[in-house]
Simulated scan of single mutants.
Amino acid sequence: MNENLIDTEWELLLDQLQQLVGKRPADLNAVLFLIGVQELGRGPRRFSKEAKQDLMHIAVCRVLSQSDYYEFDGYDKDGWPQWKLLKPIPHADLLGQESFLKRHVILYFQRILV
């Protein structure tokens, strides 16, 4: 997926999410937070700053699992999903990392918003 297509698909995704949740996510981190809440499966509630970071980590692992970077490894004692790294994530500059994640987030939502 080239950068222009990623940007177009990303804007369309943000529009869809606005329709679903009533507010347009501000950035990639906000979308990752939404995915984390979805993957945790406990519904919306208030989370501490640390829990929000954990939710975003869950989201990153989940979306990258589509390309076999991570594998679901069960739940911890508190019921939070755990992931195992299977292969190194490609190194890139900050914009490259963002583009890499956006591609995977778009794919994630394409699979669940059918």
Rank of each mutant, 00 (worst) to 15 (best):
S48F: 03
S48N: 00
S48G: 10
S48M: 07
S48T: 15
K49F: 15
K49H: 01
K49C: 04
E50A: 13
E50V: 10
E50W: 06
E50G: 06
A51L: 09
A51R: 05
K52A: 07
K52V: 05
Q53G: 01
Q53C: 00
Q53K: 13
D54Y: 02
D54G: 02
D54I: 01
D54N: 05
D54H: 00
L55E: 13
L55Y: 14
L55C: 00
L55D: 08
L55M: 08
M56S: 05
M56T: 11
M56E: 10
M56F: 07
H57N: 09
H57A: 09
H57Y: 07
H57T: 15
H57Q: 14
I58P: 02
I58Y: 03
I58L: 06
I58W: 03
I58Q: 09
A59V: 08
A59N: 04
A59H: 05
A59K: 04
A59E: 09
V60R: 10
V60E: 13
V60S: 05
V60G: 01
V60M: 08
C61V: 06
C61E: 08
C61F: 04
C61N: 02
R62P: 00
R62E: 08
R62A: 14
R62G: 03
R62D: 01
R62C: 06
V63F: 01
V63Y: 01
V63H: 01
L64R: 10
L64K: 13
L64T: 14
L64W: 00
L64F: 10
S65R: 07
S65Q: 08
S65M: 12
Q66G: 10
Q66T: 02
Q66A: 14
S67Y: 09
S67F: 02
S67G: 09
S67R: 14
S67E: 12
D68E: 14
D68Q: 12
D68Y: 03
Y69M: 05
Y69S: 09
Y69T: 06
Y70L: 03
Y70F: 12
Y70V: 03
Y70W: 05
Y70E: 04
E71L: 09
E71I: 08
F72T: 02
F72D: 07
D73V: 15
D73Y: 08
D73N: 13
D73P: 03
D73W: 10
D73G: 05
G74A: 11
G74M: 12
G74T: 15
Y75V: 15
Y75I: 12
Y75G: 06
Y75T: 13
D76F: 11
D76T: 06
D76G: 03
D76R: 04
D76K: 04
D76A: 07
K77S: 13
K77N: 13
